[in-house]
Amino acid sequence: MTTTQWLLNAGLLIFILATNLGTRPVTRRRLILPIILAAVAGILLLSNIPTGGNDLALDYIGAGAGIALGILAALLMRVERNPAGQATSTAGAPYALLWLLVIGGRVTFAESANGWAAAGIRDFSISNAITGADAWTAAFIIMALTMVAARVITTYIRYRALPARVDAGTPQPVRGH
């Protein structure tokens, strides 16, 4: 991995944790900004996706893993209304651990691909018709971007499912059986 790739991964982890850990209001900006950033990153980083052999299948696997991990990340956040009626999300150690494992796993794979696991990854790639490092890079980028998008979309769905603010002083109709 290059220094730039190390910095991008570290920056991504810091940004995700700094903007999501603790209790935060669910705002339009908090929902839209990660989607915009993911779209820009996709445009900048995925301009030339390898399509030979089974490269696209690897991309689909990356997208599926990203969606599953993004949903899991969102489910590790509590989404609720605070006493003032504002929607909030709360993320703690399990959320941070998931992101650390995912980003750490990508970094570990990239480093091991040039070191101790190079022969195994090469042999796996050859036997599964994956054309090389660029195909793996694209799949991991797709995984990261879909993870962010799935986390935001799942959080939005959970936010929309929250009950409307209820005034404690107003009698509410009872819904019977």
Rank of each mutant, 00 (worst) to 15 (best):
I49F: 04
R78M: 05
A150R: 00
A164I: 02
A161R: 15
F124V: 11
H177F: 12
W6P: 01
R160K: 15
L7D: 03
A139D: 06
L12G: 15
L101E: 04
A119D: 15
D55R: 03
V79R: 00
D59V: 13
A96N: 09
A113N: 14
A149C: 10
G120N: 13
I16M: 12
G115T: 10
T3V: 08
I157K: 12
G53L: 08
L97N: 03
D123R: 15
G70R: 04
I43M: 09
T4K: 10
T27C: 05
A38P: 07
A117G: 02
L8M: 13
W136D: 01
M77L: 11
R78T: 14
P163C: 05
V40H: 01
Q172V: 11
G92F: 00
A149I: 12
T146Y: 15
G52W: 03
T3P: 01
G92L: 02
N20P: 00
H177N: 14
G120F: 13
V107P: 01
R160W: 04
G85L: 07
I16E: 01
A74H: 05
F140S: 09
Q86P: 00
A39G: 06
T27A: 05
Y95N: 06
N82H: 07
G92C: 08
I141G: 03
I67G: 01
L100S: 15
I35E: 07
A57M: 11
N82R: 14
M77P: 02
S47V: 01
A110D: 09
D59T: 09
I16P: 00
R165W: 06
M143Q: 14
T3R: 04
G115K: 10
I130M: 04
L13A: 14
L37T: 14
V107G: 02
D167R: 05
Y156H: 11
R175Q: 06
A93S: 08
